[in-house]
């Protein structure tokens, strides 16, 4: 154990100091197209219908492989999120089977309740890994855990334009990024060529087809629409308080700007005696007399 970790430590350091960062060796994948999101910008809000559709995609497609460990069924009733009614959330919960222990200490499966978290598709990570070669990542924070390099000068521009949607943009692009591998690209067994995935070889089989998930609000049942809806849903899952954050932020900023203005004029007033040219021969001396 000791030898192994020391070797790892030396490896990590070597990789950094000697100048062979792993990622840099690969060519950078193309930039995901920038989509328009209801939750971007200073007044952004989640689109309830979109999150409900996204949840449907998660439930019918992604949940066979991806867990959503940090979310509870009660979160579905978040009025600033998917906005299901409590009864609807309860209904959804009861359709899931939750492992529990009964009064006699025996393992049982019971219908889910609002307080339960989403049950994972695999009993543990090793089982998930054994199935696909790579464990499908948990989806609770996925939209904040992915992105792409913006590069100079965009990373500076982003401060002012508030562009924070690299995660959902990447996810939507990744879900639609499956292509025939270009000539000469060696795709390992079990791999799938994806234009946007770093290194292009992803273990996730293309999960979406046109018409796969039935929408009842008339939205197009296309991979493009599915990809966008699930990406929005994942953004909410990762950042459930985004709407409150932006709303409070606006109020705080208005308050601070007004306060700063008032303080500025107070400061000018206080300093007047010192800064006005005709009186400025005085310093501490005059202020004492004046006060």
């Amino acid at each position: 154990m000791k030898a192994k970790s020391t070797i790892r430590a030396v490896f990590v350091f070597g990789a950094l100091a000697a100048g062979t960062a792993v990622a840099a060796a690969q060519e950078e994948p193309p930039t995901p197209p920038r989509l328009s999101w209801s939750f971007s910008g200073p007044f952004g809000k989640y689109d309830q219908a979109q999150l409900q559709r996204g949840f449907k995609v998660y439930r019918e497609v992604c949940s066979t492989c991806h867990s959503l460990n940090l979310l509870a069924f009660r979160d579905l009733a978040d009025p600033y999120g998917p906005g299901f009614s409590e009864a609807q959330a309860q209904q959804i919960a009861s359709e899931y089977k939750i492992k529990d222990i009964d009064d006699k200490g025996q393992p049982i499966e019971r219908p889910g309740r609002l307080a339960d978290h989403f049950p994972p598709p695999f009993p543990n990570e090793a089982a998930a890994k054994a199935t696909y070669g790579v464990a499908p990542p948990d989806m609770s924070t996925l939209a904040k855990a992915r992105g792409y390099r913006r590069g100079f000068p965009w990373f500076i521009v982003d401060i002012f334009t508030q562009y924070q949607e690299e995660g959902p943009d990447y996810i939507a692009a990744y879900l639609q990024g499956y292509r025939e591998p270009p000539k000469g690209f060696e795709l390992p067994a079990g791999g799938h060529y994806n234009e946007y995935f770093p290194g292009h070889n992803t273990a996730m089989p293309p999960p979406l087809q046109d018409g796969q998930v039935a929408y009842d609000d008339g939205s197009p049942q296309t991979v493009q629409q599915y990809a966008k809806d699930i990406a929005a849903f994942l953004m909410w899952a990762a950042e459930p308080h985004l709407v409150a954050r932006k709303r409070i932020g606006f109020q705080v900023l208005i308050y601070l700007i007004v306060l700063a203005g008032l303080l500025y004029f107070t400061k000018k007033r206080v300093w007047h005696a010192v800064e006005a040219p005709h009186e400025s021969a005085s310093g501490q001396a005059a202020t004492k007399a004046g006060a």
């Binding site: 924070t141 855990a145 992915r146 401060i159 932020g249």
Partner: peptide
């Protein structure tokens, strides 16, 4: 930063 771009300075990998 706090209200509009709170993750701008945080690294995405730290959400894994």
């Amino acid at each position: 930063f706090v209200f509009y771009i709170p993750n701008y300075l945080l690294h995405p990998d730290n959400y894994i």
